[in-house]
Amino acid sequence: MTDTAECNPKPTEQKPTERDDTHLTDIEEGAGCTEIWEHLAEKREE
């Protein structure tokens, strides 16, 4: 017989979190990682 932990995960109630993604509003829908990285780099330079 082996010792095993019981796996009975209990659902947790998660509150919707507010996302601070306003820095991404200028990025076009469907942009890839490179476009996002370039956009963020440009914002840092400003």
Rank of each mutant, 00 (worst) to 15 (best):
Q14F: 09
M1Q: 06
K15G: 03
T4D: 02
D20L: 04
T4G: 01
E6Q: 06
Q14I: 13
K10L: 11
T12D: 08
Q14E: 15
K43A: 15
C7S: 13
T22S: 15
H23Q: 04
T12Y: 05
I36E: 03
T17P: 00
C33K: 03
E18W: 09
N8Y: 03
L24R: 07
E45Q: 15
E46T: 10
E6G: 01
A31I: 11
L40N: 10
T34R: 02
A31V: 13
I36C: 04
D20Q: 05
L40E: 14
E46W: 03
R19A: 07
M1C: 06
E29R: 14
A5E: 05
T22K: 10
C7A: 13
P16W: 06
I36N: 01
E18P: 04
T4P: 01
E46F: 04
T17D: 09
E29G: 06
P16R: 12
L24P: 02
G30Q: 08
T25D: 15
C7H: 13
M1A: 11
P11K: 08
K15F: 04
E28I: 04
E42R: 06
P9Y: 01
E38L: 15
A31S: 15
E46S: 13
K43H: 12
E35D: 15
N8F: 07
P16C: 09
E46V: 09
E42P: 00
D20Y: 02
G30R: 07
A31M: 11
P9R: 00
T17Y: 07
A41K: 14
D21S: 10
E46I: 05
K15Q: 13
D26C: 02
H23G: 00
H39Q: 02
A31D: 15
C33V: 06
L24I: 04
I36V: 15
A41R: 14
T12R: 13
D26M: 02
E42H: 06
E29S: 10
E29Y: 10
D21R: 10
E6A: 08
T34V: 06
G30H: 07
R44G: 11
N8D: 09
E28T: 05
D21W: 11
I36H: 05
I36W: 05
D3H: 10
E35C: 04
T17E: 15
D26T: 02
E46M: 09
E29L: 11
A5L: 09
E18C: 04
R19Y: 02
T34M: 04
P16S: 12
R44V: 15
P16A: 14
H23L: 06
P11Q: 06
I27M: 04
E13D: 13
C33W: 09
G30V: 07
T25P: 00
E45C: 09
P16H: 08
T34N: 03
K15S: 13
W37P: 00
L40K: 10
E45F: 09
L24Q: 07
H39K: 01
K10G: 05
Q14C: 12
T22H: 12
R44I: 15
T12P: 01
A5V: 03
D21T: 11
H39S: 09
E13H: 10
T12I: 13
K15I: 10
T34E: 08
A41Q: 12
L24Y: 14
G30C: 08
A5H: 01
N8H: 05
E38S: 14
G32L: 00
D26R: 01
L24D: 08
P11L: 10
G30E: 08
T2A: 08
T25V: 11
K10I: 10
C7T: 14
T22Y: 08
E13G: 07
L24M: 14
W37D: 10
A41C: 12
